[in-house]
Each structure stands twice: as C-alpha cells, then as structure tokens.
Design a protein around this nucleic acid. Sequence first.
DNA 1: CAACAAAATGCAACAGAGTTGCATATGCAA
DNA 2: TTGCATATGCAACTCTGTTGCATTTTGTTG
Lengths: 154, 154
Amino acid sequence: MSRMNRRGSKSSADATAKIRAIGQRATPGRVRVLSLLGTVPRGLTHQDIETALARSGEGPMDRVTLYRVLDSLVSAGLVLRQADESRVFRFSAAGQAEAHAAHAHFRCDGCGRVFCLEAPPPAAPALPDGFRLSRMSLDLRGACRDCAAKRRAG
Amino acid sequence: MSRMNRRGSKSSADATAKIRAIGQRATPGRVRVLSLLGTVPRGLTHQDIETALARSGEGPMDRVTLYRVLDSLVSAGLVLRQADESRVFRFSAAGQAEAHAAHAHFRCDGCGRVFCLEAPPPAAPALPDGFRLSRMSLDLRGACRDCAAKRRAG
DNA sequence: CAACAAAATGCAACAGAGTTGCATATGCAA
DNA sequence: TTGCATATGCAACTCTGTTGCATTTTGTTG
Ligand SMILES: [Mn+2]
Ligand SMILES: [Mn+2]
Ligand SMILES: [Zn+2]
Ligand SMILES: [Zn+2]
C-alpha cells in the first residue's frame, strides 16, 4: 500500500486495467470516476460524484466532461445507470450493481430509503418465444418501521 | 351514448364524481385529465397529455395548470405518478395502475418497449419487523424477440 | 339568484439535470 | 517523437418541472 503512492492506489490501477481491457483510453477522468464508484456500495448521482472529486486531492472535474466520462463507462458496460424516483440518474460500478441484482429491495414511500432484503429472487416466469432475459428485479414498496410507527402515532 | 353529448361523456361524469367524492373541486381541467387517463392502458407523460388535450375538441390546456392538475389528482390518490427510465414522470389512473400491479413486466433494453407477462406475482418475501408492504413488482429486462433477432443478425 | 371566500388558473420567470457545438489538448500506437 | 483519433473545457441550449402573483372560477351561503 505504499509503493504506488505517487500517482495511484490499487483501485486506480484496477480501474485503468478495466478501461483498457474494453478498448477505451484510460484518461484521468475515467480512472478517477471508476475508482470512486468501486469504493461505494450504491449509486451516486452526477452531483455526488462531482462533489466527491472536487474534495479529493486531484481537484474538480468539468461538469460536462464528467457527464461524458459517465456515458463512456456506461456504454462500455463498466457502470450502470438508472433513473431514481426523483428523476435523476444514479451511477454504480457494474460489480456493485450486480451484487444487488441477487436479492430483493424494499423502498419506503415515506422516507425514500431502500433496504436490501435477504430473500433470494423468485424463479423467472416463462417468457414469450424468442425473448432473452438479462436481469430480473423484485421491488417491494411500503413503509419502513420508522415511518410505519410515525404514521400510527402522528 | 347520445343523451349527454353536449358537455360530457360517460367518462366525464364518472371523473367528475370521483373528484367530488374525494372533496376536490371538479374543474374542467381535472375532469378532462382524469377522463383521458381512464381511457389509456398505461402511463402518459405530461407531454403526452398536453398533446392529447390540445388535439381534443376542448382545445389546449396551460402547461403549468396541467402540472398542477396532475399534482392534485396524485395527492388525491386518483392518479399514480412514477419516474420512467428516461427520467420523466408518467401518470396513470389509479385503477389502470393497479391492474398492472397484478402481473410481471418485461422491458426490452433494445427498443424500450414494455410487455405484460401472464405470470402471477411470486409470494412476498419476509420483511423486517414493523415493515408494512403496499406494493410489489417483478420486473424483467433483456431483449424482446425483434431485438434479439436483430442482434443475432447484426 | 347574488355575494362571497377559498381554490384554481394563466402567464412570466426560474431552477436543475442533462446535451450539443466547437475549438483546444492529450492518449496511445506507430 | 509524431500524428491523429479521441477526450476535454467552456458556453449556450433543451427539457422537465416549480414558484410567485394577479385574475378568474367554483361551490356555498343567505
Ligand atoms: Mn441490495
Ligand atoms: Mn401490465
Ligand atoms: Zn421510511
Ligand atoms: Zn425490443
């Protein structure tokens, strides 16, 4: 953990390799963003990422460039993008996202928090002829414990 | 079907009743929008609705008023609002939305179309203590027949 | 029906997230 | 090291949705 301090940590080297592997140029922006996404468990917004990068040692990244970096990582399949309830995109490293694909999620309509459930996903239903399944998600909604209690009291 | 032509169809009268029933004023805008949503099977965007109304006999409705009409119907529980993949809200009559809650859906990553599957929803997984479930959805993704064929052909 | 207060409307201005065009800089393969 | 395809930075723009405020309409009351 100390031989590579000058210009990159383990995760940078890792990110660089992944980016090159899929035939894209390993630019500083791409490496920084992919490394960052690798360290957090769930999706970050463009805004989140911009702020995190600005605070980091290497300084801020241009807003538009960040959008384009994210686009390129998404189209390369290294990052997943999904619109959240407040209609902003959240970006997550593909590995992290796939971990969450293996179980169900519960979203509280009161506070908006998402909880990972232990339950294994159900068997996939039969698809029409010729359809190809790539992902499946089971999403539950309702009130979390705090919000359910609040409503009872409130 | 002909006695009530002057200023309203069956669905208008219906919508008016529903709006009054929940203690809101039955304004023309609300009635028009709720009737419209009652006639279509899936969620429409604000834009879709604006266009549909503009084409209809009664003419266009102000953009902002339409947003406010939708807000009021949503907060009354007569309409459901959800952010779609392209981060725009889609609005659907509460009845229609509940019909779709009863089965799984398949979204094609290629063409974006959504297909209703026949399969019944799986049993709800166990929730943490105190959580209350209100809805559950099983969403599949992948390639529809057309798009799968296209990819194979290339 | 007329008068009234609360609520809805129309318009203009604003805000946030994301995109586009174009000149300049840079990664990387030769 | 050089050359060129590709990425970056910046300004301007689009699209979706909100807010403030003056005016109109709705449903109610007398
Ligand atoms: Mn999870
Ligand atoms: Mn359906
Ligand atoms: Zn909650
Ligand atoms: Zn398709």
